[in-house]
Design a binder for these strands. Structure first.
Length: 106
DNA sequence: AAACTGACTAATA
DNA sequence: CTATTAGCCAGTT
């Protein structure tokens, strides 16, 4: 994979997300100096090893929802991990990015 | 090589 | 709110 270097940048940004906060693919891409490469961020997450220390669960899509993957199963784990950190989901399964988004808005 | 696919986003209608 | 279009790019078939 030729984009391995980009993965490292992406992971480095994800590691900076504080506990109890979430960020979006697009934001991560921009912070990693790869504006417009949101899709690549998704790829980087998909390629993480199962024993990673990267807090991948703190990355959600622009709507504040957990993205669906091709192989389901991980979404439930992700939501559980986030709730355990104090992230609240509304009745529609969405996170209020104004309250839990990172970097902190406002 | 060409076509497809996918943990995405933003703009527009 | 949904649908469509376009931009992005690595990995797979």
């Amino acid at each position: 994979m030729t984009g391995a270097g980009n993965y490292l940048r992406i992971w480095a940004v994800v590691r900076r997300i504080p506990r109890g906060r979430v960020s979006t693919y697009g934001r991560i891409a921009t912070l990693a100096r790869l504006p417009g490469h949101a899709r690549q961020v998704g790829y980087a997450m998909h390629g993480l090893p199962s024993d990673t220390s990267v807090p991948w669960q703190r990355v959600v899509n622009a709507k504040g929802e957990i993205s669906r993957r091709a192989r389901s199963g991980g979404e439930v784990t992700q939501r559980l991990l986030l709730e355990r950190e104090g992230v609240r989901f509304n009745s529609r399964g969405r996170i209020d990015l104004e309250a839990f988004g990172w970097p902190k808005a406002r």
